[in-house]
Amino acid sequence: MKRVFAGLLAVAFGVVLLLGISASTGLFSYNEELLDDSAASHYIAKDVNGDTGEIIFGETMDAETGSANMVTSVIANYRSFDTLGEVTVLFLAALGVSLLAGSMDKGRKRRKSGFILKVSSGILFPLMLVTGIYIFTHGHLTPGGGFPGGSMIASSFLLLYLADENFRANVRGFKIAEGIAGTLYVVLGIIGLLAGGYFLINFLPTGVVGNLFSGGIIPIVYVIIGLKVGSEITGIITDMFNEEVKA
C-alpha cells in the first residue's frame, strides 16, 4: 500500500517536473551557446571588471584571475565566498559527527590484517598523499583542486585504517588543523578587505596564465581548502571507525 502511494506520488511529481521543464528547455537537446552577457560568459573571458582582450594560454600576463582552469577561477576567485560557505558546511558536518559519535562508547579490537597488506599500504600511503597534494596545488592548471585533493589525502588515511588494525589518527590534531585552515581562509578574506577594500579580493599579482605561479591567491585558497577538506573528512572517517568499533 505504502509503495503504491509512494509510486503514485513520485510519478505525479515526475509528470509535473517533465511538463514544467519542457516549457522552458529541451529535454533531449542542449544549449547551443551561452547566453550573452551572462555571468558564465564573463567568467570565461575574464572581463568582469573591464575588457582585457582575448586570454591566450601561456601568453597573457596579469589577467583578471590567472587560473587557466575556469572552474577553479570561479570556485576560488569569482565565487570564493560560496566556497568559504561550503567548507563551513563540511566543517559543521564533521563537528556534528564527532559531537554525536563522540558520545558513543569506544573500544574493541579490529580484525588483524596481514603483513603484505600492511607493507603495501605503507608504500601506497605516501604516494596517495603526494598525489593529493599535487592535485590541489595544480588546481588552477589541471582538473581537480582543493576538494578532490583533500579527499585524496583523507582516502590515504582511510587506507591506513583499513590496513593496520592498530592505527589511530589523532582526532584532536585534525580538528586543530581544520580550525587553523578555516581561520586562515577567513583571515585571507579580511586581509583582502584591509588591503583592497573587498572581502576575499585577489590581492596578489597573477602572472602568466598557465604557469604554476599564476593564480594570485587562488593556489593559496586551494591549499587551504585541500588541507581543510582533508582534515575534515579524515576526522569524519576516524569518528566513523571509532563508532563502528564498539558496536
Binding site: 568559504l84 563537528l95 586543530i176 580550525g179 577567513v186 578574506g189 579580511i190
Partner: peptide, 13 residues
C-alpha cells in the same frame, strides 16, 4: 558573517 565564522573555527582549536 566573517567574524562569527572565524570565531567558530578558532573555537575548535
Amino acid at each position: 558573517i566573517a567574524i562569527p565564522l572565524g570565531l567558530a573555527f578558532i573555537a575548535v582549536i
